[in-house]
Write a protein that binds this DNA or RNA. Structure first.
Lengths: 202, 202
DNA sequence: CCTCCGCGTTAACCTGGGTTAAGAAGCACC
DNA sequence: GGTGCTTCTTAACCCAGGTTAACGCGGAGG
């Protein structure tokens, strides 16, 4: 097994996923993947916690992560779920080079490929391909956030729930319902009511 | 006056603003600014409307723009306000190369420097500096969107209003109150109540 | 086996904000 | 002057969703 701990198969899958975002020459890919380091995160383990500096970002190989805020009264608000071949990091804080204000927690046993932010930046500084890759990543995230803004501005809680079910049907099996409620910005009780209404009203 | 219609002063201001985001050599700057074209937009004029392909993005030179959605029942939801030296475009749609679904309207007589998306992309394709600039732009927008997500998830309407007043105090003079209400995701009536409560409760 | 705990549901009650409508103030234009 | 228009406010009524609490279920661990 290579130094970074990735299997050849994982290497190929990651390469395919990233090349789809932005074309990467074989050489650039070797440079990039050489910066990665496999890391296991057991269920319940944290990849980020508030107050920590953001030194790494991760690509999920297996498993599922949850990004969430916690307010002063201990209430959680889920920002995102991240599954295989998605990027996970306190991204806004990374960009601003501030300490994290988000928790990132493994919902199941999870395997990551982690990268040091400064190592990536050093490599991207002179690489048009990596710079473009980084650009595409943020673009992808930006589009997701704007879609979310759209839903909060224009849709009722019930519509947001239906959109969630339609867009991420496989997640529903693996995520407790109260976290879905939190993701769409309501309480577990309210979501339970919405589901009951839908069941009766058909 | 140069071909693109910018005054030397505007040229210098734009250069300063963009260089602060990402360093640009004089040569790259000449290339970029050569792609720009001054354009006037009278009060009430539209820079983008739903259904249109997104062919241009703009830097605001003077004036004020409003980005908003309109739903099936004709209700507007304000996404953003953009003032001098900010970027304006239906950004998510531009990234996805889809038709616009957002209105962009001038709230006052406005002057823009517009760029053809494909001309910019062609220039950025081979320019590390422009690619980095594009990356920084999206990063800036991403951070704004995530801040907005945070506010919708964690704050009450009243708190969102107070944040708005604190972060954009100068806009309050120039924007009708019902558009502020729309921006924070409530109706004009609700905002009026919140303000009345604050006045009394003081 | 029993206990505990996390999860979902339901019910009761409360409140913030939506809806509709009316009125007042300011402004532009005829 | 009058007639609109837009903006803001206030009031009345309604409803979605928050809050609290009780109950049931199922899985984990003693």
């Amino acid at each position: 097994m290579p130094l970074n701990g990735l299997t050849p198969e994982e290497d190929a899958q990651l390469h395919a996923r990233l090349s789809a975002l932005a074309p990467l020459s074989a050489k650039t890919w070797r440079t990039l993947v050489g910066l990665g380091q496999r890391r296991e995160l057991p269920k319940g383990g944290l990849f980020s916690a508030p107050g920590q500096p953001v030194t790494h970002f991760a690509l999920v190989l297996k498993g599922l992560l949850r990004h969430f805020y916690v307010d002063a009264k201990g209430r959680e608000s889920v920002k995102a779920f991240r599954g295989p071949f998605e990027v996970s990091a306190p991204y806004a804080e990374l960009i601003q080079r501030k300490a994290s204000r988000t928790h990132i927690e493994a919902l199941t046993d999870t395997e990551l490929c982690v990268f040091r932010v400064d190592a990536f930046e050093a490599a991207a500084k002179d690489s048009l391909e990596l710079m473009r890759l980084a650009r595409r990543f943020v673009e992808e995230h930006f589009v997701q956030k704007e879609q979310r803004e759209y839903e909060f501005l224009m849709l009722s809680a019930e519509e947001r729930y239906r959109h969630f079910c339609a867009r991420l049907p496989d997640l529903l099996q693996h995520i407790p319902q109260h976290q879905v409620a939190s993701y769409i910005g309501i309480t577990p009780v309210a979501l339970s009511r919405i589901r009951a209404r839908a069941r009766r009203g058909q």
